[in-house]
Amino acid sequence: MNETVLPMRRGIISKGLSQAFLANSETKGAIMTGKNQYVVRRGDGWGVRGEGNSRLTASYDTQREAIERGREIARNQGSELRIQGSDAKFREAWSYGNDPFPPEG
């Protein structure tokens, strides 16, 4: 199984890992419980989209507004927020679940 590992603000996570995975003694609960949220460019504005959804959850004029709403949703769901830059590349990701790969140090 080939998986791409993406660098994260807080640790690393395999591309495509989005839903809860089985609890064990180390994690003491689900890692991700809700859908990952994506802040994406939409025409002249920005939007928030849940993973796997074809439609936007919400639309905004600015990226900042979309990030604020996406962060709220991700925190409430214990999931991840991924932010797309103006160049259409995802520039950062924030994990609000139980992080299985916390940063060292």
Rank of each mutant, 00 (worst) to 15 (best):
G47H: 01
F90R: 06
F21T: 12
S18V: 06
Y38V: 08
R71H: 11
Y60V: 01
V39I: 14
G85I: 07
V40T: 11
R41M: 08
G47S: 14
Y60Q: 04
M8G: 10
I31A: 06
A23P: 12
M8K: 07
N2D: 10
E92Y: 00
G105F: 01
S18M: 01
E51I: 02
R55F: 14
G70T: 02
A58N: 04
N76T: 10
D61P: 04
L6N: 11
T62W: 04
P103K: 14
G29V: 11
I83P: 01
S54T: 12
I13C: 08
I73A: 09
V39H: 00
V39M: 08
S86V: 08
Q84A: 01
G11Y: 02
I31W: 05
N36L: 06
I13A: 07
G11R: 07
V5W: 13
Y38M: 11
V40A: 09
F101V: 10
V39W: 02
P7C: 03
S25W: 13
A93F: 05
K89P: 01
S18D: 03
E3F: 11
Q37P: 02
Q77G: 10
R71P: 05
E3N: 07
K28R: 15
N53C: 11
L81K: 01
N36I: 06
D44I: 04
A66S: 13
I12R: 15
K15T: 03
G50I: 00
D99H: 13
A20G: 15
S18L: 05
K28M: 15
A20H: 02
G97K: 06
G29H: 07
R69E: 14
Y96V: 09
E65F: 08
R71I: 11
S95P: 02
T57E: 15
S25G: 00
N2A: 10
A66V: 03
E26D: 13
G78S: 15
L22W: 01
G47I: 09
Q77T: 14
